[in-house]
Nucleic acid binder design. Structure first.
Lengths: 131, 131
DNA sequence: GTGCTTGCAAAGAGTTTGCACCGTC
DNA sequence: GACGGTGCAAACTCTTTGCAAGCAC
């Protein structure tokens, strides 16, 4: 029944705490390397496998999404569920406030006898500045 | 101005023709390895880099989507635009007939001053047999 | 002290690329 | 015959894993 604020049953380490803080501060999902570089600012000895292992260890509070560039992005699930508009020119990422799928999942689920657990939506195009 | 049925300006080779045929016959997006194995049935000497190079060469008629398992899937764009329900247990893939986003793109585009060129939607959960 | 976590190094998976030969146009 | 396509092998990127030392509880 133990349940800490952030990490439920995991040990609290400098690396883990900083990783969570980096994700909390992030405005958008981050790649493992982006997390690594931000953590490294404060903990220079950290290695990238520590990032990957924590993404696995903390998977209950993290969502992973692989983008079309082949790199996974990670974000805290406690942050509100978002999708992104991704600019193909400048790679800017714009969050969509309201998930457009909530209303549709019930129908999809019933029509296909499929229990929906999660979904991935990314929209690619050109942002205002790059059009 | 030359424009063939399938391949517009590209050379027609045994490998390329078979790759396109495999994609035309496929009921769902295929990984490079799946394409490779199907092509190999008929052309045993084919190598997987030929698949990847053709995915690049034919990118005007192919859509690539990277799933959360880190593998890219490829499908012909001429096939009708689909999204998939992906079972997390048996990895079965069920196509969704009607794109639920068409109706929403206009709003999203206007609200964010974003020119939408393509989108990716995958839904994960448990299929009828795995629930 | 026990067991999870880390750093380091090496291995794996998926994908890309250099090169010489081959086949299409 | 020229040029793009292919097979082969090696390289590259992202991610995962084995191991011994370190740290949290």
């Amino acid at each position: 029944m133990s349940k800490n604020q952030n990490v439920s049953d995991y040990k609290s380490t400098k690396q883990r705490n900083k990783i969570i803080q980096v994700l909390q501060d992030a405005k958008r999902p981050l790649t493992a390397e982006e997390i690594y570089l931000l953590v490294k600012d404060e903990l220079p000895s950290v290695v990238i496998s520590t990032i990957y292992r924590n993404m696995e260890a903390l998977k209950n509070i993290i969502v992973k999404t692989v983008y079309n560039d082949g790199k996974a992005r990670y974000a805290l699930t406690k942050e509100k569920h978002t999708h992104n508009l991704i600019c193909l020119k400048c790679t800017k990422i714009i969050a969509i406030e309201k998930c457009p799928l909530e209303a549709l999942e019930k129908n999809l689920s019933e029509q296909n006898s499929f229990e929906i657990l999660e979904h991935k939506l990314e929209i690619y195009g050109h942002c205002k500045d790059c059009r």
